[in-house]
Amino acid sequence: MSGFFDAYLFASVFITLFVIMDPPGVVPIFLGLTGAMTRQQRNRAARQAVLVALGVIVAFALFGQSLLDYMHITLPALQASGGLLLLLIAMELLTGKMEEPQPSGNGKVNVALVPLGTPLLAGPGAIVATMVFVQQSDKTLPDWTAIAAGVVAVHVALYLAMRFANVIHRVLGDSGTILVTRIAGLLLAAIAVQLVADAVEAFIKAA
C-alpha cells in the first residue's frame, strides 16, 4: 500500500463490482432496450445510464445505510423491489414493446435512467457491495481513493461496453438485434427472479 492509494483494495472493489455489474453481459440488454434508437440516441443513452449508475452508487456509498435505517427499509426489501422492476422490463423485452418507437415528449420513462441506470447497472448487488466496502474500510485517504478509483474504473468499463454496442448492432442487423432482444429479455427475467428469490430467502432467514 502506498501513502495515497491502496492497490489491493482497488483490485477488490473493481473485481467485485465488475462481476456484479457485468459490462459484457449488459451489451445484449442494452441493445434490446435501445433497439428503436438511432446511433446518436444510443450513445447518449449509454452516457446517461453510466452517469445515473455512478450517481446512485456514490450516493448509497455515502448515505445509503443512514437512509435505509431512517426509512426502516431492509436490504432484502430493496433487492426484491429491484427484482420486480426488472421483471416488468423483461416482459416488455419478450413481448416486443421495447421495440416500438416512442416519440419524445410523450412522458414515458427514459430507459437510460430506468431500468438501465438503475436497477440494472446500479442494482441491489452493486449498492450493497459498495456499502460493505465503505463500512469495512479504515476511512483513510488511501482507502477512500482506492474505493473511488475502483467504482469509477468499473463505470468506465460499462460505458465502453455500451458505447461499442453500436458495432455489434451493425453486425447483427435489425433481425439479429430482435433475436438478441428476446434472449436478453429471457436472461433479464432470470436475473429478476433470482433477485426476488434471494430476497425471499433472506426474509425467511431473518424471521
Score class of each variant (00 low, 15 high):
residue 164 F to D: 07
residue 69 D to F: 00
residue 58 V to P: 01
residue 114 V to G: 02
residue 32 G to E: 04
residue 111 V to G: 06
residue 30 F to P: 09
residue 8 Y to F: 11
residue 107 G to L: 02
residue 129 A to E: 03
residue 105 G to Q: 06
residue 177 T to E: 07
residue 90 A to F: 01
residue 8 Y to R: 15
residue 194 Q to W: 00
residue 134 V to Y: 04
residue 92 E to L: 13
residue 182 R to H: 11
residue 53 A to K: 09
residue 38 T to K: 08
residue 8 Y to T: 15
residue 98 M to Q: 13
residue 174 D to N: 14
residue 136 Q to S: 09
residue 121 L to V: 15
residue 123 G to R: 06
residue 90 A to E: 03
residue 154 V to K: 01
residue 100 E to S: 12
residue 71 M to F: 15
residue 150 G to I: 04
residue 79 Q to C: 04
residue 4 F to L: 15
residue 146 A to I: 09
residue 70 Y to A: 15
residue 118 T to F: 01
residue 101 P to T: 10
residue 142 P to R: 05
residue 205 K to M: 10
residue 63 F to Y: 10
residue 3 G to T: 08
residue 85 L to N: 02
residue 93 L to S: 05
residue 144 W to G: 08
residue 149 A to M: 06
residue 44 R to G: 12
residue 108 K to F: 02
residue 172 L to E: 06
residue 82 G to H: 03
residue 73 I to P: 05
residue 167 V to S: 14
residue 159 Y to E: 00
residue 151 V to F: 01
residue 48 Q to N: 13
residue 83 G to R: 03
residue 52 V to N: 09
residue 62 L to P: 07
residue 183 I to W: 09
residue 150 G to Y: 01
residue 126 A to H: 00
residue 31 L to R: 02
residue 95 T to E: 13
residue 30 F to G: 07
residue 60 F to Y: 14
residue 24 P to E: 09
residue 57 I to G: 02
residue 147 I to P: 02
residue 25 G to T: 07
residue 96 G to K: 11
residue 169 H to N: 10
residue 109 V to Q: 05
residue 89 I to P: 07
residue 94 L to V: 11
residue 198 D to H: 14
residue 10 F to G: 05
residue 172 L to M: 13
residue 132 V to L: 13
residue 123 G to A: 08
residue 97 K to C: 08
residue 147 I to N: 01
residue 134 V to N: 03
residue 42 R to M: 12
residue 159 Y to I: 03
residue 158 L to M: 14
residue 19 V to R: 10
residue 200 V to P: 07
residue 20 I to N: 04
residue 191 I to A: 04
residue 30 F to I: 11
residue 41 Q to H: 11
residue 92 E to T: 10
residue 159 Y to G: 05
residue 89 I to V: 14
residue 92 E to V: 07
residue 182 R to K: 15
residue 108 K to I: 07
residue 46 A to F: 07
residue 132 V to E: 11
residue 123 G to K: 08
residue 19 V to Y: 00
residue 15 I to R: 05
residue 115 P to Q: 01
residue 170 R to I: 08
residue 90 A to D: 00
residue 21 M to G: 08
residue 62 L to I: 14
residue 90 A to H: 08
residue 13 V to S: 00
residue 128 V to L: 10
residue 9 L to F: 02
residue 199 A to D: 01
residue 93 L to A: 09
residue 102 Q to P: 10
residue 20 I to D: 02
residue 127 I to P: 06
residue 89 I to S: 13
residue 4 F to A: 15
residue 18 F to N: 10
residue 55 G to M: 05
residue 167 V to R: 15
residue 171 V to L: 14
residue 14 F to C: 10
residue 104 S to M: 13
residue 60 F to N: 07
residue 34 T to W: 00
residue 164 F to V: 06
residue 34 T to K: 02
residue 92 E to H: 14
residue 161 A to R: 10
residue 126 A to M: 07
residue 69 D to P: 04
residue 15 I to H: 02
residue 92 E to R: 15
residue 168 I to T: 14
residue 142 P to C: 09
residue 61 A to M: 14
residue 195 L to I: 06
residue 159 Y to Q: 00
residue 66 S to N: 11
